Simulated assay, not measured.
Amino acid sequence: MVDAFVGKFVVEKRENFDGFMKGIGVPEEYVEKARNAEVKTEISKNGDVITVTRIRPIKTTTNSFSFGKESEVENIKGEKMKVVVNYEGGKIVSRGDNYEVTQEMDGGRLKEVITLKGHTMTRYSKRQ
């Protein structure tokens, strides 16, 4: 159930961070700064609306959505895009043009697989 995702998380590790960031066109100086930055994620639920807030040292973003409805979200690069979010097999899946994020609970940790413009990064976060 989606209630398992509600809470506060902090990133523990990332797989393919550099390749992903460079692949989507993030300048090298930002990749250097962001590589070891503490990223916090807060997920909340109010009725049928899910809100995901990313707290980064440089910028905080908040995206809200309801399952099955088109929503506008801001991606990791700061670009606005249209996505449809669904709950599939215990995972929250956001899909848009050249964009997909899958979030799942994996051993008490939040696992996120982010694909943008054909480049993929996996991020693991522990509960705070």
Rank of each mutant, 00 (worst) to 15 (best):
M1L: 11
M1W: 05
D3W: 10
A4V: 12
A4E: 11
F5Q: 02
F5M: 01
V6I: 07
G7H: 00
K8C: 07
K8T: 06
F9C: 03
F9K: 00
V10H: 06
V11T: 12
E12W: 03
K13P: 12
R14W: 08
R14T: 13
E15F: 13
N16D: 10
F17M: 01
D18W: 08
G19C: 01
F20L: 04
F20V: 03
G25L: 01
V26T: 03
P27A: 03
P27I: 06
Y30V: 12
Y30C: 14
V31K: 02
V31T: 11
E32M: 11
A34T: 10
A34S: 12
N36L: 12
A37Q: 05
A37I: 09
E38D: 13
V39Y: 03
V39C: 13
V39G: 09
V39F: 10
K40G: 14
T41H: 09
I43F: 00
S44A: 09
K45T: 14
N46F: 11
N46Q: 15
D48T: 13
V49M: 08
V49Y: 02
T51N: 07
T51E: 10
V52F: 02
R56S: 15
R56Q: 14
I58K: 15
K59C: 10
K59A: 12
T60S: 02
T62V: 13
N63H: 00
N63L: 00
S64N: 06
S64A: 08
S64Q: 04
F65P: 04
F65A: 03
F65N: 07
S66F: 10
G68R: 00
G68H: 02
K69P: 09
K69Y: 07
E70A: 12
E70V: 14
S71V: 11
S71L: 05
E72R: 07
I76A: 10
K77R: 13
E79D: 15
E79C: 08
E79M: 11
K80V: 06
K80P: 09
M81Y: 04
K82M: 06
V84C: 05
V85H: 01
Y87N: 12
Y87W: 12
G89R: 00
G89A: 04
G89P: 09
G90E: 00
K91E: 14
K91S: 10
V93Y: 00
V93E: 01
S94T: 14
G96A: 00
G96H: 01
D97Q: 13
Y99P: 13
Y99G: 07
E100G: 08
E100W: 03
T102W: 06
T102D: 11
T102Y: 07
E104N: 04
E104A: 08
M105N: 05
M105F: 02
D106N: 15
G107V: 06
L110Y: 01
K111D: 02
E112K: 13
E112L: 15
I114V: 15
T115L: 05
T115R: 03
L116F: 04
L116V: 14
L116Y: 04
K117P: 10
G118N: 01
H119R: 05
H119P: 03
T120P: 02
T120A: 05
M121N: 10
T122K: 00
T122I: 08
T122N: 02
R123T: 04
R123H: 02
Y124Q: 05
Y124T: 09
Y124V: 11
S125F: 03
K126Y: 04
K126D: 06
R127I: 08
R127A: 07
Q128E: 11
Q128N: 06
